[in-house]
């Protein structure tokens, strides 16, 4: 079985974001980077599947500048067999269609049985890349999965819907799955595996070899929403706090009118 997992490096979401000079993306400098959280679940699911089936080969793919290799090493230490780094300093400028086309161009003649991606990235959050890869390759996709099982060629996945409803979806390989938080418990890479990861294959492929389409959309502007009035912190003794709260509820809301 051949498995592909696609991951993205995103800034630590606790970073202090600034806008870039064009005002259409965040400033990439002085940020701490990590693996997109949704992708950690995708890697974990791929590694679990690889352990479950015999003779699986698991490739991890990421598009971006050299620094993404650090995160790819983590995926290799978690259990991926080999890495494909699509080298691209400008990946953040590409729209979801371009990114998906690059991944599909890489995957098209490699006959992956299963492809895992995160449901969305924490920085762009379009939620489109996984689905577009599947469409481009002409394979089914199941999105937002919260449970996954594979037996006798059959894929059974649970999807999380609004209103607390779940859906059970069945399909057969080849297929693509986009992973929701909580799908599993991503493992910590062990130290021996971190050390072994440096010996695993990590191919670098220039993006120009795979990037053959034009973008279909552009981010015209990125901005911080205008600040609304901040919250109110009440201070003082308990009795006094209650009085203050009642006054606010009376004056500003209809609750105690």
């Amino acid at each position: 079985m051949k498995i592909l997992v696609c991951i993205k490096q995103v800034p630590d979401m606790e970073s202090k974001f600034k806008l870039n000079s064009e005002g259409n993306w965040y400033d990439n400098s002085d940020l701490a980077w990590r693996m997109n959280e949704y992708d950690e679940y995708a890697v974990e699911q791929a590694v679990q599947l690889k352990t479950q089936v015999d003779e699986a080969d698991l490739t991890v793919l990421s598009i971006g500048p050299d620094r993404v290799k650090e995160m790819m090493k983590k995926a290799l230490a978690m259990g991926c067999d080999r890495g494909a780094h699509i080298s691209d300093d400008d990946s953040f400028k590409k729209d979801p269609y371009e990114i998906a086309s690059i991944i599909a161009a890489f995957a098209k003649d490699k006959e992956f049985d299963l492809i895992f991606t995160g449901m969305q990235s924490q920085d762009r959050g379009s939620g489109q890349v996984g689905v577009l890869v599947a469409e481009t390759l002409g394979i089914p996709s199941i999105t937002t999965i919260v449970d996954f099982a594979f037996a006798a060629g059959q894929i059974t996945a649970k999807r999380e819907l609004e209103g607390g409803i779940k859906a059970l979806i069945k399909t057969t390989a080849p297929a693509l799955l986009t992973c929701q938080l909580g799908l599993n418990t991503p493992r910590y890479p062990t130290l021996p595996n971190i050390m072994k990861a440096k010996k695993k294959e990590l191919l670098s492929i220039p993006v120009a070899e795979l990037h053959k389409v034009a973008s279909k959309q552009e981010t015209a502007r990125m901005y911080f929403p205008e600040k609304r009035g901040g919250g109110l912190v009440l201070e003082g003794a308990v009795g006094n706090l209650a009085d203050q709260l009642i006054k606010i509820l009376k004056d500003k809301t209809g609750v105690l009118a």
Partner: peptide, 14 residues
């Protein structure tokens, strides 16, 4: 090194 950073991040997360 990349390994040292990965070890730091892993132990920190743990």
């Amino acid at each position: 090194t990349e390994e040292q950073k990965l070890i730091r991040d892993t132990v920190r997360a743990f």
